[in-house]
Amino acid sequence: MTSLLTQVVVRLLLAPTIVIAAAVLAKGYSSVGDGFSAGVIAALGVIAVYLVLGAEQADRLLPVRLAPVGAIAGLLITLVVTFSSVVRGEPLLTHAPPPGADVIHLGTLELITAVAFDVGVFLLVFGAVVGILRTVALARSEAGS
């Protein structure tokens, strides 16, 4: 089937893919990219593993079973960010800190709620894309058995 080399390369590639995804996510506010692209990039890394190693191996190797959890958690985070400002008596989706206020920096990462929003998007997209492809893959193995 697939050569040993591809198998090794795919495993090796996964880590940098995730790193790239993280970078795209973190830098989204100042340059190209956002949570969505980050999520898809990370998902593509996982999918590559899937394609090469097959569903069973990939399931063993990666915590993809948790994809739905990620998706639901991501959506939940985004929702919480969206609606939490309402609890504070502000219009929905009012990010903190407000315009003009200082932003706490953690390295290059800015600590603003918009980032949390984007993290939610990332988690959801990652979880959903992996989940969709995994559903298709599982449907195949279930249909086969």
């Binding site: 989204g28 506010y29 100042s30 340059s31 190209v32 990219g33 956002d34 949570g35 989706l93 990010h95 800190p97 315009p99 932003v103 800015e110 603003i112 918009a114 929003f117 984007d118 998007v121």
Partner: peptide, 13 residues
């Protein structure tokens, strides 16, 4: 909105 990329600012804020 504390952002640099206008498109991302629109999308997240």
């Amino acid at each position: 909105a504390h952002a640099k990329d206008v498109v991302t600012a629109i999308l997240t804020d």
